[in-house]
Design a protein around this nucleic acid. Structure first.
Lengths: 217, 217, 217, 217
DNA sequence: AATGAATGAGTCTTCATTCAT
DNA sequence: AATGAATGAAGACTCATTCAT
């Protein structure tokens, strides 16, 4: 799951105390980053928030970038975890879409602050850009796979390239979530999720009636 | 058009020479920003590229942010101009959508580099965030207006809130363009634009046959 | 003459004022280094001594090492200049030796403080080690050349390899000067220089009587 | 022999285990110092090499300087020991000189790496400078004593001050050895040692024939 | 207007040394 | 004795911005 090297600096395993301090620093960094953004955060802000001395930061991380990678890796893991947990078991495409979009919004909301930080860091840090891209790629991949299956089974229109529709629809969901949840643009949740679902369903021409049964598209 | 205060520092009008120097600085800044991003660019990079002395920068701009605002304003103006020029005169929704999406892609591609810079600056500079939001807002507004009209005329489905579908579809187009054209993810243009159009058309349930004539949606 | 790259950071030529500031910084660095050694000197010590702001240092130099290189290059130049100026015109080996040793001591004394600094820096900085070695190498080379000539002309013993005797005798003079003049070990100048000369003369078996005339060695 | 305070920190005697740990640390420090020099060596490099925890270092030493003093004391002891062991019993000055020079080279070669470290530390640490000076002083003293004896016995020229010739000749041997063996400048051993001996012998005008018997100098 | 030197606040980063366990 | 986490003083370096000419 992890993309960056999040291993602690000391090569030996951490003691219980060390692990606790490291965790405190990560926690503090997450707070500080969320509050003022990555760029505006100083190492001393983090150590102050963690209640450690300045230099302690460097016992566990090489740089601000590295601690963000550690956080991001963890967040991505939790994010994906949230999605997996709530995986729809139904084979009904409309239900799958509705379910996934809802889960996506729920998961995003839980990490909206740190996603904003990752988004910022991705604009100037290559490692972070790679991570950011990989998150999205994962969703595109998954959506494309579903679409390919549905097309094969005649459950949806087959006239659009799966990879491309998937990329477009994921861009929509992901970026809308960013503007809405990370940047705080107000939108009514119910309507938004409904519209999202409908756009997916219509784009893929998933038939309304008896969606688990093939229809003439 | 302008969002930030882009007036030159001296309140008096610029001499011809002064205007030329200012233009050279803007030009240079745009190059430098495009190449290494806003954060990585130093004032001296800009003045070196413009062939002026270090301090000359401050004869025309108050800060690095301000020169970016000047550039961004100009770019936004050209961006919107490009779209307006190519405005579809047809009333056929499908044609309008197809036309607008194509124009959008063309316009975005022309400013992809600087859009990446604006995107970066928007993550930490409020003025830039406001500008960035305003660009998108303009498109959402316009799309929502079209949709509202089409709905009123029975040219498209009326079951989704215009503002929300518009926001979602614009998020899709805008963010996909960013990833594709600003960040360089490869995609086949024809297919992408086709899929984009189809998603809009299907999302809005614009009937294929006789699109200028109302149909039962 | 110069070994390191002592060009000022700004690629353009310095203005009169800039050159003055740079000179002041070099002057100050030389004082500070001489007083407390290279390692114990902080950049702020130098700028304080030069009466400039902290950052001004970096307008002219990249690092403490670089300013030392600039100083060292200059010192080496002056050092070699001093020796050249006072070059013995006589062909008499004893006279040449006596003259050169005297000049060497005079030149060394003039730069004893900075030589101590160079000696220190050469123990951990490779560039400086190279410079330090190159100074000595120059003297060894010169001495070896003289010896070779004298041997060919029968003016001195030919049973020792010129390069090796030269290296040994230069090590003696150079290192004794370091201990005496740089580290401050007290020695009576007259006696020391006399003994130095005698050791060279005897080592090379230069005949006392009629030294410009070949003798049976 | 010891110059610095090399007593272990706890005043009580060391346990067997403690002594072993201390020895391991000294051994490790010597390796690390030799490899990267005193300044570039971190305490953690030493403890890592010794296979102990960071803090253990301070159970046995007060500082990085102190462990070097301990090493230097030991090295100086071994150095002098090597020389003493191989002491020439002959009274023949030429033989004594040749023997001593050879022994000196052998002894120096055995400690060339750590001598380089001591040389470095002596440039900024007073204790180390004192130690370094004391080593040389010992040799100068010894050489001066021999010379004085030989002069008194008519075995060598009496026109140069023993202390001064000794200081010069020791500077030659010592510094040449440093450049050759510590800094790695290549030289052919046989020729070098031969030339060294000859310089001493000629400088002191030790007669070739029947050197144990007084001659007219 | 233009120049380019001067400024100095702001941060990062290192690592010898201490300390609680 | 040993451990290894914690400390924090110390100093380097950057670069947007100001200023004297």
């Amino acid at each position: 799951m992890a993309t960056g090297d999040t291993a602690p600096r000391p090569s030996s395993a951490l003691t219980r105390k060390g692990a606790a301090t490291r965790a405190r620093l990560i926690q503090a960094a997450q707070c500080v980053f969320s509050e003022r953004g990555f760029l505006q955060s100083k190492i001393t802000d983090i150590t102050a928030a963690a209640g450690t001395a300045n230099g302690t930061f460097y016992t566990y991380f090489d740089s601000k970038e590295q601690v963000l990678m550690a956080i991001a890796d963890e967040v991505v893991g939790r994010f994906l975890g949230t999605l997996r947990e709530g995986r729809s078991t139904s084979g009904d495409p409309a239900e799958v879409i509705s379910h996934d979009n809802h889960q996506y919004v729920v998961a995003y909301r839980a990490h909206a602050d740190i996603m904003r930080v990752i988004e910022q860091a991705a604009t100037f840090n290559n490692e972070m850009a790679v991570l950011r891209r990989s998150i999205r790629e994962r969703f595109v991949e998954r959506a494309a796979r579903s679409i390919r299956t549905w097309q094969a089974e005649g459950l949806c229109s087959a006239d659009l390239t799966p990879r491309i529709v998937a990329a477009l629809l994921v861009a929509m969901v992901d970026n809308f979530a960013y503007n809405w949840l990370s940047l705080g643009q107000p939108h009514p949740e119910d309507e938004v999720v409904h519209a999202m679902n409908e756009i997916w369903i219509r784009a893929l021409r998933i038939p309304k009636e008896a969606r688990t049964h093939p229809a003439q598209l």
